[in-house]
Write a protein that binds this DNA or RNA. Structure first.
Lengths: 227, 227
DNA sequence: CATAACGCTAAACAGTTGTTCAATAAATGT
DNA sequence: ACATTTATTGAACAACTGTTTAGCGTTATG
């Protein structure tokens, strides 16, 4: 009669179907999709293995449901954060602090498996970033670029890549991008050199003409500094 | 009697043991470690599944051997490339062009699984990069940093992250970092905005004080532009 | 030539995988 | 109250997993 006429609920408020999906996201995020068995998901959700398949059709379908949900959550967070002005970091603010499944960790794990849902979400992320950066250029905050879209794409890839390699970044610098970010100084070891490079740059312009920039060493044609 | 008294060889010059390892690297790189079965490796190497285990002890040991080999190859390429002067790109030049197994692709796949061998290699990569960048600062080519080591680490993570996310980068920009790089213009869509950002920066210094930089929006304390 | 060692395989092992099926328990609609 | 769907389970399936064991054929050595 009410909105949740179907779906049994245990002591937890979430329905069984959602509990299974959240358990799957958690395990997929931790060990990867291939290394996670349906049975392990069932145990984590407190449910029979057969129910996992019965609810979602197959393990692959469950994975797709996880992808769709994660993309959806991050989209929401993104549009929430947009009110407080444009943000150069394309990955939305920490979601799991609110009690939900580890969405960021899931993204970090499954970015290389390349699902259509996650890929589409990344495309949107980059489009948004490109739009905001165009605004920034117009308002004089950002410098113009010879390749505005590609610049936004590379910047987004760098941010996402740092998220994917969070384990190495933490070992190297101590900054854990997947930690609950109530304390911003916890990732200062990442953000400080990052902002430093993106504002001041790393190459001295004056000396840039006598020595080639990194990738150009490998034989690229000249790259004019300004259009 | 001669150096290779043991080890049978097929029409291919490589010994069976090496053929197995190369097949494993190729399949691990393509589908990931967990999703690759010992039998699939055996078929690819033209060998019985039992031999794969017999030679390496276990699948995990084989994986370790792959990690060790890949780290070794990349170390060699790195020291080769060092003769032509320091390079800001920490990932050594294309190896599989020489006919060997897809080392770069393997690295891109297994960077998130975190083996001790690969992690150690990354640490060395960053140490090298930090050293070279310190040289660059001394020679006036590079700007000094408030956090020289962290800057090298973040730069390396960005490069490696772009490699890991090569599939998305290619979809977004058309630049395929895993393609055989005989033609440098194939990755120009990545290198051009990248060098642009790292030389000119993206934020206008003049306006940088009235509006916060990306990560600082989330509540970090002030970050002095120069020490 | 006999004997040992080696590279390699076929067959089988026990365990796990995703999935199916029939049956039970619970909730819903009438 | 009954009938009907729905939620959930336990057991079983066939296929696949990494690994083991015994033995083959070849090669080298005594």
């Amino acid at each position: 009669m009410n909105m949740r006429s179907k779906s049994a609920h245990s002591s937890d408020g979430r329905s069984t179907e959602i509990r299974i999906r959240d358990a799957a996201i958690t395990l997929f995020a931790e060990h990867g999709v291939a290394a996670t068995s349906v049975r392990a998901i069932a145990v984590a959700a407190g449910v029979a293995p057969s129910l996992v398949i019965h609810q979602y059709g197959s393990k692959e379908a469950l994975r797709t449901a996880c992808d769709t949900y994660v993309a959806e959550v991050l989209r929401e967070r993104k549009s929430e954060g947009m009110r407080s002005g444009p943000d150069l970091d394309p990955v939305p603010t920490p979601p799991e602090a609110h009690g939900g499944p580890p969405v960021r960790r899931y993204l970090a794990r499954t970015l290389i498996d390349g699902s259509p849902q996650v890929s589409a979400m990344i495309d949107e992320l980059v489009d948004d970033a490109a739009r905001y950066m165009a605004q920034g250029v117009e308002s004089g905050l950002l410098k113009p670029s010879d390749h505005p879209y590609e610049r936004a794409a590379v910047l987004a890839i760098w941010s996402l890549g740092a998220l994917v390699l969070h384990q190495h970044l933490e070992r190297l610098t101590g900054a854990d991008l997947l930690a609950d970010r109530d304390d911003p100084s916890a990732i200062a070891a990442y953000t400080e050199p990052a902002t430093e490079m993106l504002t001041r740059g790393i190459v001295n312009e004056r000396a840039a003409h006598q020595a080639r920039t990194p990738e150009e060493q490998k034989g690229k044609q000249a790259c004019s500094p300004q259009k």
